[in-house]
Write a protein that binds this DNA or RNA. Sequence first.
DNA 1: ATCCTACGATGGACTTTGTCTAAGTCAAGT
DNA 2: ACTTGACTTAGACAAAGTCCATCGTAGGAT
Lengths: 138, 138
Amino acid sequence: MSDLLERLRGRGWRMTAQRRVVAEVLDGDHVHLTADEVHARAVTKLPEISRATVYNTLGELVTLGEVLEVSTDRRAKRYDPNAHRPHQHLVCAQCGAIRDVHPAGDPLADLPADERFGFVVSAVEVTYRGVCPNCAGA
Amino acid sequence: MSDLLERLRGRGWRMTAQRRVVAEVLDGDHVHLTADEVHARAVTKLPEISRATVYNTLGELVTLGEVLEVSTDRRAKRYDPNAHRPHQHLVCAQCGAIRDVHPAGDPLADLPADERFGFVVSAVEVTYRGVCPNCAGA
DNA sequence: ATCCTACGATGGACTTTGTCTAAGTCAAGT
DNA sequence: ACTTGACTTAGACAAAGTCCATCGTAGGAT
């Protein structure tokens, strides 16, 4: 993750304790935290960090393309640091667990020209829904 | 849409002026209104209808499978009366316009078994994003 | 090493979207 | 027409997020 910090500094990002902490919290695989969860974890490392700063920083990371915003449920947006390998999400309908998955094929190609209504289509989001092994066992 | 009202009455739905108005507002193709928009239109036909009733009625229609809930942006949920023909959505990134589309292929089949992590996968949501002809022209 | 200053952080008010509740109203069966 | 339980209402409440005026500080300039 220090590569991330290096890259950001290279782009003229001003480095602050708050931004460093937010970046640290987002480190790892299969991380899909809400803004409030990011804030809660950041507070343990830097007690005076404010919610507004967490929101601002997450927004900047999204703009810079370093973090993806995903909304798998209709509650809070979640932030996914796995922005450099295209992937989709698999969500448990019961507990809300999220896994990154990599389907075969290109879903963009599945939309025929006569179903595009003149739109320039540039992206597609796919969310698979089901029940995870934990919840199915219970 | 009066078929809808008939069907609901057949299922033991108590018919009220409020429910009738909500069902009327949702009539049509390519209708994707937010709850507040439904309320705003309902008020023009029945001034004393309350927001809570609109939310309740929309929720019931969703439970009954007569209306779909879609969240194409991260703001309000939208309600789609086109619940009987499976379809996906194409969204303009600029103006938010939404079209129903019918892609070829089955996106569920694109998720190989070894990417399912033991989940029982039962549904998939696909949202295409792009720029509509109106916004592209501007 | 110290100073400057523009960029970043803060917290609290505010907005949007949605849920809940207690009390009143009414559709539909008898 | 009466009764009853389902439906509706207004408003309080909650969660998620944005905005703004003010304060603080990172990092270049001296």
